[in-house]
């Protein structure tokens, strides 16, 4: 029997919401950073866990979002006003569009499946990283520094947000909204069909579903969420570099999501928080050997608990309308 675990899910969000009461400013800033990675992890959880598409280059979309925000707010895009709102819109639209077009190209006809899709996305991320390194207008190897903080209003009345507490609250709100949106999508009939396509693509196509368009649309949603996380990253760190587009971050997010549990959004979110926190502690203590520990942990998890360490705890029951035998 499935254990109803929604009280636990609510508790996780409640504890996060209450953190400002007990956590100091320094750690609050750190936690905001971790939750940005958590949003990023949820984007991969959606496309991998629900859509069955193992994207090996998810950082491409995170980086596109971060660069879109940085270039916009620094006023480097000709004809585009230097506003954070426009930055957010671009950070959603640009990765979303790139993923949709890439998806249509990859899934049309017989379509790329399994490892081939992973390899192409990995290659795309690596190419994007190389491009960013060599393109001086967007900062080249050094990236872009001094990205303005999130600003509301303009002129004398403008409010700049750089204190840890408001940043924490904004990122927390963003994470919760992303969580609820993706969860709603997963639990809607759309989510059922998406899992159906993951399960048996041919059956879905022979019931009238345009499988390629479905997968491309889901890929675009995941990319837009990753881009959104990238935009938050840019304003929180005030710095973007080609490294956030490429191979290393793509692999990292894969490990967070695999360890947490790809099929459960909250497990993927917490996977990012936990692995990153442990990394902060252990990389001090172990230095480079930390990566070895992480690698061993990853292999153990894949072999012994392929559904992830946290997924069994946070798995939700099926939506009421889908529960059988009631």
């Amino acid at each position: 029997m499935r254990r109803p675990s929604s009280p636990l899910t609510v508790a996780v969000w409640a504890v996060l919401a209450l953190c400002p009461l007990v956590v100091d400013d320094w750690n609050l800033g750190l936690l905001a950073q971790l939750m940005i990675y958590g949003i990023f992890a949820m984007s991969l959880s959606f496309i991998w866990g629900q859509g069955g598409l193992l994207c090996f280059g998810q950082a491409l979309f995170f980086g596109l979002g971060a660069y879109a925000m940085a270039l916009t707010t620094k006023g480097l895009l000709p004809g585009v006003p230097a506003s954070a709102l426009v930055g957010f819109l671009l950070a959603l639209a640009l990765p979303g569009t790139v993923a949709f077009l890439l998806g249509l190209a990859l899934f049309r006809g017989r379509g790329l499946v399994g490892p081939y899709f992973g390899i192409v996305t990995l290659a795309a991320a690596v190419i994007a990283e190389r491009l960013a390194v060599n393109w001086n207008y967007i900062g080249g190897f050094n990236g872009l520094l001094d990205i303005p903080p999130l600003t509301f209003g303009s002129g004398d009345g403008a409010i700049e947000i750089f204190e840890p507490l408001p940043i924490f609250l904004i990122v927390f709100g963003a994470a919760l909204v992303v969580y609820l949106l993706l969860l709603g999508l997963e639990r809607s009939p759309f989510g059922t069909v998406l899992r159906g396509i993951r399960d048996n693509e041919m059956r879905a196509a022979f019931m009238g579903y345009d499988v390629a368009r479905y997968k491309a649309a889901s890929f675009a949603v995941a990319a837009a969420v990753a881009g959104f996380a990238g935009a938050l990253f840019a304003i929180q760190f005030a710095f973007v570099s080609p490294a956030i587009l490429g191979f290393a971050l793509s692999t990292e997010v894969l490990i967070w999501v695999a360890l947490g549990g790809k099929e459960v959004l909250l497990a993927a979110f917490l996977g990012a928080l936990v692995v990153k926190s442990v990394e902060n502690v252990l990389s001090d203590a172990l230095g480079q050997y930390w990566l070895l520990v992480l690698g061993i942990l990853f292999i153990l998890s894949v072999v012994l608990l392929p559904r992830g360490l946290l997924a069994p705890v946070f798995r939700l029951r099926l939506p009421r309308g889908l529960r059988g035998g009631g």
Partner: peptide, 26 residues
């Protein structure tokens, strides 16, 4: 038999019912 093997019977039927409404666009 081509059904959605990882999913419950009700979920299988939901996919079919959604197709019946010609709701093919995401």
């Amino acid at each position: 038999p081509a059904v959605f093997g990882d999913m419950t019977v009700t979920e299988n039927i939901e996919i079919a019912a959604a197709a019946a409404k010609r709701a093919y666009l995401p």
